[in-house]
Every structure is written in structure tokens, then in C-alpha cells.
Design a protein around this nucleic acid. Structure first.
Lengths: 348, 348
DNA sequence: GACCATATAGAAAGCGCTTGCTGCGTTGCT
DNA sequence: AGCAACGCAGCAAGCGCTTTCTATATGGTC
């Protein structure tokens, strides 16, 4: 029923070996023979059997991409950039890699399960995006898995994620701490002294780093932080909305709200508006990431731009061995402060 | 170096066949034996070889998802929902499927190439999302490919895409025409008579259907359309921005701008604002899709909500054979008009 | 004209797993 | 007791491809 290499070989009057070589193009084959084979392939409408090749050659052309949630543009943008680089059709000639996108939903178990599944597929590379969980046993388990993958020849790259200790995975880390610091410094520079902070879920490196940056800025400015000014929540709009209401309840005199990311900031804006507060006249708002919509909300969002697409593309190239890993296997990717309409001088 | 089934078998003192059966759980194995095998698997840290299984069993656990661009939340949301249903870890027990996300970028060739690549992988299912190209030769080529995939046992589902003729692919189609009509009727109901329309790229079913709906509404209301009122462009913010400027140049008396989708609408809003026009006091704006950010822009966007996540989930379940396909293999998914702040009565 | 380097094709041995079939020891039934 | 039926495990034949090694031309060289 299904056409195999042997059928093509028979039709082209050559051996299966030759057909394989024509198709893989890594061994000299006479032009005339090649043409004959190609014609047979065409006539029979032959399609290589991927699993069989993978088995025989002990390699596959799958690349795993772990994300929290692909519906979130933060991850979507990175995934898209990675995909463009790993050379699907239209990419550089040669390997046509397929991207396997895995939504971990931020769950440690799923992260591990997906890594195992990718190991099972003998993935050519695995790219982990986004922050890591700060859970020592889990981190160790992940590191062990990554080591095993690397041993099996899978290239491992971390994109927007802190380096994994005891691993030689290449890491492209976002400077969340530095970005957070800059952002809060900007607000302080405008005159703000009472700043609410809506942090992401605890036990996440991203959350902690951004918060640390924020606090460092406060400390540098000699501002004593009130514990009531920080609320934790998920990285979504809803959480931002609720956290802002809570913040307002705790201290109605806040003049600025710094959000863990842009989506959270959007929720914060909605809550402020519904509370009858003007942005930035009454309260300034700041986000993080600079997702595409951030410039379109009104007022446009002051935030820290993270070069998601660039980082993803670079991670993709490194994963494909088309770009040298950074020295030491670790590179820090900085964000850029984008001052826009949502931040202004505090009401007096 | 790498552990194989045989190693596990040796360690558990059983035959490879038994180990395989324990791992696949589709053949009776005595509890004590199973336990012994499982222990050996654990001790050796064994991971099944996916390609080898796929080859031997002639099936794989990969599911292809074709999207235009995964960075676009329109596709990201569907992909995420599909992924959740095809039973990665955490999904229903049994198959742990991996989602292969393919960015076609709206290019016919890449669409075809990716389908071939998925065919090569012997994907368990393929889900095509988003509108189709209206290019007869290409449509025929895709249909032929889909037939071939179906013949090979790959389940094919179209999500948010018109049915593919001469194919028995299940289609979950968005009612773009109906949605477009409703939207424009709403605007007409408010009193608008001169409406600009920013359409998507030509030769796309989505573009055509939405535009047809718009025109049908105009016709029903006895409004004669001025050809200058329609501009085509890409489905992104930038295109919306430019198209709006063009529209304004052609006819500064327009009182409403209907955009092909929400991103385009955002661009339109930006252009209007920069032109000194207030929304909706001077010009009303409407989008399509109701992506998450649409409610957060100011004014919030009047649009047509498409149940992207629900449709994706359903497509995923159908692809996995966990839900009956709709009768006739075709179902129409309707949108819901969301009237918000960006539309109002026209200036008099 | 003999000999060797070079170019190209074929033979065959797997890659690691699944599964149809066979075999044997038990249990159930009459 | 005797026979059928059943439950469970093993054998072995592939699944469709890659790749090493070998064989055969071919041409160049002295």
C-alpha cells in the first residue's frame, strides 16, 4: 500500500542505498542516476518515512520548545522566532526541522514529563523559554534531565531563563533584575515615593529578579518599603486587576503601580480606571516586556522592552549550531526602558 | 551506551516482548511481572525510543498544527487549546501527544511543505487553522495532500477554516460572513452611512467572507458603497495604521472604520488619534476576533468575539477521536457581537 | 600496457521496537 | 478424570531506513 524506498529503488533501477543517498545528499551520486531516482520519487509520490530514518540514523529533526503557554504572546513571539531559525521550509537549506511546542503551564511535573517525551523522540535540540521554578528538588531533576539530553546529543538552550547549574546548557538570560531596577528608578526620578508592586507567582526566578530590581532601586533612593505595597499574583490581566484593588485598599495614597508584566499592568489600569483614578495624573503605571499591544493602550504603557524575537532567533541558531554560543555558555540579554504615557509626575 | 528494551528485559528476566507490553499496557501482563519490569525500567532510567516504536507500530504520537504565525494570539490561543486537548502530560491518560506547530506565514508553498513533513513523520493528526488561500491550484494541491494524509491514517481537522472540497476532513468553520454582517449592521444602526473598510490580504477566505458580510449589511440598508472606502492590507497593526491614513485621504468624511481584525483596528485607532480625530466621537472603529487586549484598549473595542479556545479544544478532541465529528463533517462556529466603547453615533 | 587513485553503486547488517503466533501451565466444566 | 478454555510469556519476523564495507568501472600516470 505505502510506497517505500525499495519501491523507488526498483523503479529507478538502482539499489535502496542509492536512493537513500540521493535523498540525503551526503554522498556522491552521479547526476544521471540522481535524476533517475528523483523522477521515480516523483512518479511514485514517495515520502520518506521519518521514524525509520530517525531510527536508522539515530537522529531526528524535531526541536522541542518548552513554554509556559503558547497563547501568551511573550512565549508566542519567542517560539515564532525560534521556529523561523530552525529552518522549517524557507529556512536555510538542509535540515527541515519541526518545532514541537510544549505548554508546561508553569507546572514542574509537566516540564519534566515533556523533557522525557522529547528525550524519547531523540529531539535534535530542546529550548526552554521563560523563567524557572525556584524549587531545589525540581531544579535538580531538570538539571539531571538536561544532562541526560545533552549526553544523548540533544543540544539544550535556555532562552530568557537563568543558567542551569551543573549543566552545560547554553543560557540566554534576560536581565530582569536590571530592567526592574531601571523602571523603578524612572518612577522615583519622576518623584514617586509610594509605589505599589504587583509581583508574579512566588518561586519563579522571573518574579524574584524583577522584584529584586525594584527593591534595589527603592533602597538606592533611600525609600523604605512598606510590606503592604507588594502583592503576588499570576502573570495575567485578571491578577493585575485584583491585586490593584487590593493595593488600593491597603494604601490609597499610592502614586504608582509597577506590574510584573504588561498583561498585569493592563489589569491594573482597568482597576484604577474603575476606581475613578486617572493614569498617570493620579497614579502612574508601569509594565514589563513591551508586548505589541503595550503601545496601543491608552495611555501607552511605560515598560521595559525585552528583545524577545531577537533572543528567540539567537537561541534557535545556537540550537542548530549555526551560531557560536556566547563565551562561558552564558549571555545576558538586557531590556530597554520605554518611557511612555502611563507614567508621569505624581499628584502633589 | 544507551539503554534499550533488551537491557530492561534482561534485568527484569523477561523477554523484550513483555517489557514492550508492560510499557504499552495493551496486553495482559501479570501484576508481579509488570512490577518487576517497571522496577527495572526505573533502575536503568530507561526511556523508550520513539522513532523505533513509531516505525514498528506504524504510528507516531505527533500532532501537527498549522498556523500562520504562532506569535499572533489569534493562532496562539487556538494552538494552546488544541495542545491542552491532545493530551500532553496532564491530559487524559493514555496517549501523550506532542504538538508540532508549523508557521506557514500564509505562504502556500510552506503550507504544502509542512504537510509533507508531517506526512513524513506519520503524524497521528493534523489540524489546519485560520483561513485558506483562494488559489485554485494551491487549494487542489492541499486537498490532494489532505487526502493522502487521511489515507495514511492521519486524522485531519480544519479549525476556523472553510471545508476543503473533495476531502473528508472535518471542518469547524468560523462564520466570518455572518459576523462581518452583524458588525456593520450595528454601525449602520447607530446611524453611520459612510463606512471605511480595511480588508485583509486578497485571496484569503477570511478576508473575502468578512468583506462580503460587510457589503451584505450595506446592501440590506440600501447604502451604495463607494469603492474608495475599501483598502486591502496585511492582518497587522501597521497595515491598519497605513490603510486608515489612506482612507482618510480618500474620504475625510467617513464616520466609521471597520477593520479586518483587532490588530488592524488598533492600528486604525492610532492613525485616527494622530490625525486628531476622537474615537468614537468623530469616527467609530470596529475590529474582529476579540483578542484579549481588545477590552483593554481605550476606548475598548467593538468587535466580534470568536470562540477561539473552544473551537481549538473541540478540534483537538475530534482529532484525537474523543469527540464525534459534527454531522456531515462540517460545523459552523458563530461569533458574537461585542459592542463596546469604540463605536457610537456618528457626528452630525 | 600495467597499475593505482578515484568515483560510484550494491550487499548486507543492523537501528530498537511491536506483534502475530506458539507454547505451556492452570483453571473451569462436565 | 478428561478436555476445553484461558491467562500469560516468549519467539521471531519484520517495520523502512542508513551506512560500512566491498566491488566495479574509469581514467590517469609512468
Amino acid at each position: 500500500m505505502t510506497v517505500t524506498l525499495a519501491d523507488v529503488a526498483a523503479r529507478a533501477q538502482v539499489s535502496p542505498a542509492t536512493v537513500s543517498r540521493v535523498l540525503n545528499g551526503n554522498y556522491p551520486v552521479a547526476a544521471s542516476t540522481r535524476e533517475r531516482v528523483l523522477r521515480a520519487v516523483d512518479e511514485l509520490d514517495y515520502v520518506l518515512n521519518g521514524p525509520a530514518s530517525a531510527l536508522a540514523a539515530a537522529t531526528s529533526d524535531l526541536v522541542g520548545i518548552l513554554v509556559n503557554d503558547i497563547a501568551d504572546p511573550f512565549f508566542g513571539i519567542m517560539a515564532s522566532a525560534i521556529q523561523a531559525e530552525i529552518g522549517g521550509p524557507g529556512g536555510r537549506a538542509g535540515g527541515e526541522r519541526l518545532a514541537v511546542v510544549c505548554n508546561t503551564g508553569g507546572s514542574p511535573e509537566r516540564e519534566l514529563t515533556y523533557l522525557t517525551l522529547l528525550q524519547r523522540q531523540r529531539a535534535a535540540a530542546v529550548i526552554l523559554t521563560g523563567g524557572a521554578m525556584e524549587n531545589p528538588p525540581h531544579a535538580a531533576a531538570v538539571a539531571a534531565k538536561l544532562r541526560k539530553l545533552a549526553d544523548a546529543g540533544t543540544r539544550v538552550v535556555l532562552c530568557g531563563r537563568p543558567p542551569a547549574p551543573d549543566t552545560d546548557a547554553v543560557a540566554l538570560t534576560f536581565d530582569n533584575r536590571g530592567g526592574g531596577k531601571q523602571l523603578t528608578e524612572h518612577l522615583i526620578g519622576l518623584g514617586h515615593r509610594r509605589l505599589g508592586y504587583i509581583a508574579g507567582p512566588e518561586e519563579r526566578t522571573t518574579t524574584r529578579h524583577r522584584l529584586e530590581g525594584h527593591r534595589a532601586a527603592l533602597a538606592d533612593a533611600g525609600i523604605e518599603e512598606d510590606p503592604r505595597w507588594t502583592v503576588h499574583g499570576r502573570y495575567d490581566r485578571r491578577a493585575g486587576y485584583e491585586a490593584t484593588l487590593e493595593l488600593l485598599r491597603r494604601d490609597p495614597t499610592l502614586t504608582a503601580v509597577v506590574a510584573a508584566n504588561d498583561s498585569v499592568a493592563l489589569g491594573a489600569c482597568a482597576a484604577l480606571r474603575e476606581s475613578g483614578l486617572r493614569i498617570p495624573a493620579d497614579v502612574s503605571v508601569a509594565g514589563f516586556d513591551d508586548l505589541p499591544f503595550s503601545i496601543d493602550v491608552v495611555p501607552s504603557l511605560t515598560t521595559v522592552r525585552l528583545p524577545l524575537a531577537e533572543a528567540g532567533a539567537r537561541a534557535g541558531r545556537i540550537a542548530m549550531g549555526r551560531e557560536e554560543p556566547p563565551p562561558g555558555g552564558i549571555a545576558t540579554v538586557r531590556g530597554e526602558l520605554m518611557v511612555r504615557g502611563s507614567s508621569g509626575v505624581p499628584r502633589t
